[in-house]
Design a protein around this nucleic acid. Sequence first.
DNA 1: CGTTTGATTGACACGAGTCAACACCAGTGG
DNA 2: CCACTGGTGTTGACTCGTGTCAATCAAACG
Lengths: 249, 249
Amino acid sequence: MPNLLIRRLEMVSPLSAADRQLLEQATAQVRQVGADQDLICEGDLPRAVPVFLEGFACRYKTLSDGKRQIMAYLVPGDLGDLYIFLLNRMDHSIATLTPCRVAELARETVLEITARHPTLSHALWWAGLVDAAMLREGLTNMGRRPAEQRIGHLLCEMLVRLQVVGLADGNRYELPLTQAELADMMGLSTVHVNRVLQALRRQGLIRRNGKALQILDIDRLIAFSGFNPIYLHLNHGRLNDPTIETASG
Amino acid sequence: MPNLLIRRLEMVSPLSAADRQLLEQATAQVRQVGADQDLICEGDLPRAVPVFLEGFACRYKTLSDGKRQIMAYLVPGDLGDLYIFLLNRMDHSIATLTPCRVAELARETVLEITARHPTLSHALWWAGLVDAAMLREGLTNMGRRPAEQRIGHLLCEMLVRLQVVGLADGNRYELPLTQAELADMMGLSTVHVNRVLQALRRQGLIRRNGKALQILDIDRLIAFSGFNPIYLHLNHGRLNDPTIETASG
DNA sequence: CGTTTGATTGACACGAGTCAACACCAGTGG
DNA sequence: CCACTGGTGTTGACTCGTGTCAATCAAACG
């Protein structure tokens, strides 16, 4: 399998062979991690930057009353915040949701990249800016969209993100998340997530076979949930465009 | 008045005289902007990075049905995203909420800083990371806290942020926001914001005189709203600590 | 097979939205 | 000086989206 971090970064601009090789080497050290494992905990001193090559993970916080809020899903090709070591303590945790293959960018690697590899550096900053953009979109999603559109929006976003790294088959992709994990992301109860998913199925928008999720009518789901992919800052916000296929595909 | 951007950045680590001077010069060109003016709109090509020296502003998005979500308040000393020009289009708008004094960091200035002024560069990145951290905290706030705690949390955050730039007088500060603007930030209706504020007053937690907001019992408000300032990444998450006073104070 | 984890249901409670009216200013202009 | 205005804050009555609790079902698993 190609390195999905590279694949994702090349969405914006192609990398030189040297940059690609640097990334390959830096992420060569791969760890296999089981499901539901914390990689970094709130309060920890940040160490290396985790890079997810396979599996789903998330950023989350736990409130004093035990409630959990997932602030972002991390999919293959995603990475933690660069320069996180500028901050003294992690303000949130990162944990796997499924078994994952994880590499790490060492602090020195990041510093070397920012100092001597401008193209690569820009690509990594771009990824960080997209992360922030997803947080902003998540906020509007939580604040101003009712549950059905909220979840519909998430399903659209996941489709695009997984398409980018080649993990979507048309409008179908693996979404190995429980309804409780969806609920913790969307700020809803598991019961309500269940009912909303049923409603989306009843409307002929989606279908689930086990962990596979199929979007039956992407145009209708996009319109219904108010999804607009510009905040993902892909080539020009194109969705499902064949030219998005990378050279490695 | 001292340059509040400098004051804020020096929260983390002191800047050299040269760095301070560079910032002073770069932000010398100050514009006065009236209330409710868009500085950048969703879809625009990003230009310079706005720096807010006085007044309140916000990042926001408007949904197709006209609802507005404010994703962040910008207070004096805050600035837009660095490297925003890596992205082709703005995915959100930035607008003033009150009359503001605004400077701009030109693209070339940002590039020069990242290339040749590592300390300053780190300070600016730190500000960006804090922005992202506030978005994450905002997400958990929206997703998992009921309205009263949500607003209480916001009032705590504003206190700390305004203390940093010297705009708080003890536990009192100017909060020139309408209830509608609070509602658009918190994902609530104006009516409900009104009732929540009344409840907080009735509980003896806050008081309002015109635009001034006084937190009557900060400890109780912090405990009540689950506020924990570590995500603001101040010196060591100290709150109300006299050593936080900067040399310029 | 029992056990466990996750999905599904129904009844009910409650937080928050909506709508509509009214009060309270700060301007503004006659 | 006063009527008029528009924006903001305040209130009450009612609706509705979501949460909670608890039971049941289904599928995965040792």
